[in-house]
Design a protein around this nucleic acid. Structure first.
Length: 263
DNA sequence: ATCTATTCCTGGCTGC
DNA sequence: TGCAGCCAGGAATAGA
């Protein structure tokens, strides 16, 4: 599942390959991966030069000489450079010097064109790696409700998904059901630090390949080897040895150590 | 404002 | 070996 570190890895790779090049033509084979108008994408992207490739939360932004193409990878989206189309190829971008293939088995991903950054992307919460610890703590304390759903909420903080939320909460010794407004300032600062550490380390490892995530060259990440709780149900907690517990919270599989992460 | 449940989707896994 | 049923979850949506 592509979350912030996986998308960052893809964006860095795309930036080195796409910036300065022109998109000659776009083909989209299924409307399910389109947000807004498919024709608007096809019409407005053709012939445009790619000025920059950026990440905003989990969105990939191709900044064009006119407008922006936003891509969200959903659960199984992959952007692959110069490979053959396959049964799950949903779109193709023909460039002046190559081809970008969009594969997406489950079709949760989205392509969207905008003359400017679409409002729903503009209004996302701050970047976890840019917000200061003090700002994070203040933001956390301004909300009520459980901390895990809050961290998953892209309008609160942009880029975190199920894996990195579970890993961050474990490192900060915070229970996923802890109420945001009742987390101590000290613990809030520790949570911010845990988030920064987990995301930074994951980016260094080019993301986690749990199911089928690969980068633009088809390479897997390796951060899954360093997961401490995600996917570790029943295995001993690396800190205290208590078996890791898995429950469902906010309709998401939730992994935590019942001894280290108390309510 | 917060919460819960539902929907989308398919490959991979489990159990019979 | 085959097959039914379940599971994974990002985000939009509806309803409480």
């Amino acid at each position: 599942m592509p979350e912030l570190p996986e998308v960052e890895t893809v964006v860095r790779s795309l930036a080195s390959k796409l910036v300065g090049h022109t998109i000659l033509r776009v083909e989209i084979y299924t409307n399910r991966v389109v947000r807004g108008s498919r024709n608007a994408i096809i019409r407005n992207v053709a012939g445009r030069r790619i000025e920059a490739v950026e990440r905003r939360g989990k969105f990939i932004l191709l900044q064009l000489d006119r407008g922006v193409l936003a891509i969200h990878l959903g659960m199984t989206g992959k952007l692959l450079m110069d490979t053959a189309a396959g049964p799950h190829t949903r779109a193709r971008l023909f460039l002046d010097d190559g081809e970008l293939i969009y594969d997406d088995t489950r079709m949760f991903g989205k392509f969207e064109w905008g003359a400017a950054l679409p409002a729903h992307i503009e209004k996302l919460g701050p970047e976890p790696l840019q917000i200061s610890a003090a700002e994070f703590a203040a933001r956390l304390h301004s909300r009520r409700g459980m901390v895990k759903p809050l961290l998953l909420n892209q309008n609160f903080l942009r880029g975190m998904g199920n894996i990195y939320v579970d890993e961050s909460l474990f490192r900060a010794r915070t229970h996923p059901r802890a109420r945001a407004e009742r987390i101590s300032r000290k613990r809030a600062l520790a949570l911010h630090q845990a988030i920064v550490e987990v995301l930074t380390l994951a980016i260094e490892h080019r993301g986690s390949s749990v199911s089928d995530y690969v980068d633009t060259d088809g390479r897997k990440g390796s951060f899954q080897l360093l997961h401490q709780v995600y996917g570790k149900e029943g295995l001993p907690c690396p800190r205290c040895g208590t078996p890791i517990r898995k429950t469902v919270l906010a309709q998401r599989g939730t992994h935590y150590c019942p001894h280290c992460q108390r309510l």
